[in-house]
Amino acid sequence: MTRAPVMREALVLGISLLSAMAAGSLLILALGESPAHVYGLLLRSTWGDSYGVGQVLFKSTPLIFTGLSVALAFRAGLFNIGAEGQLMLGGLAAALVGASLPAGAPAALALPLVVLAAALAGAVWGAIPGVLRACFGAHEVINTIMLNFLAAALVLGLGHEVFLPETTHTALVVEGARLPALGLAGSAANLSFILALVAAAAVWFYLARARRGFELRAVGLSPGAAENAGVRVRATWVAAMATAGALAGLVGCNFVLGYKHYFEEGMGRGAGFMGIAVALLGRGHPLGVVLAALLLGTLSHGGMAVNALVPKELVDVLQAVIILAVAASSAALDRGAGRAGQ
């Protein structure tokens, strides 16, 4: 009874990765390069040395956060297309709070504070579509998209006030608010990666074990039955969106606290949308999300490495193909299973 779904998931992933490889090969061949050579170089430049590994972890970290964000909302039956905006505001909040602390603030105090600021800003931005859904029945997809644009406008508008003159970034955060690097051959990988793993574990516990997680899953699968079981459906929607926003907001840790130490316009752009791919590819399971993020992180860094041979935009195409393939093959397999099970 439990074997079949595992096989099914494996099949979905197999089909998807193969079709992405195939599409990639076509695009590479179109340039007159050898796919085997390009893929080989891509692998060597990522998992071949510790700098490559570190860069992969660095690129994967935001994807873990946004993947978890999308997956959690999805388990509650909601589409969070708004991770993009949530992570922008999370990053800005972390930078502003981190820069406003006194220079000698101890890390034990400063770090929790800035991390909290990032999560909180994301949570607020995420909660808005949740509230609109709960109170007015307004669909969250359009609202999260609109909020992405609003977040971008907000960052630009606030930028006039908070960016350093003649730049598009904020001041540096204080020493105590910085996350240390993981020390992988000078790569940008930092403690945020560990934080992301902790977040994944927490989400796993929440969904599989916690009472509220159980209720959230019930709401996602059947709001009517959940309501009948005494679950407050609307409150669950708001909570799920706020939590999803908080997870996306934590992306700010990676760039602001762990790498650049300031917030820059355009920081983390695209990670929100990629979160959808990660959540889909990870099949909504936290462990799957981590693995999917590592895979896409590999592509992302590897794309840079092979840029001399093929444009790095190839990676964007491959990521999109993966999403499409996962979406199509899982839907097709679901229908196949439904037919057989009736």
Binding site: A277, E313, A327, A331
Partner: peptide, 19 residues
């Protein structure tokens, strides 16, 4: 194939962007 319309819509936009 009845894939999810929201997911595919977003992915098509990403595809167009990269392509």
């Amino acid at each position: 194939w009845r894939a999810n319309q929201i997911v595919v819509g977003v992915a098509i936009n990403l595809l167009a962007f990269g392509l």
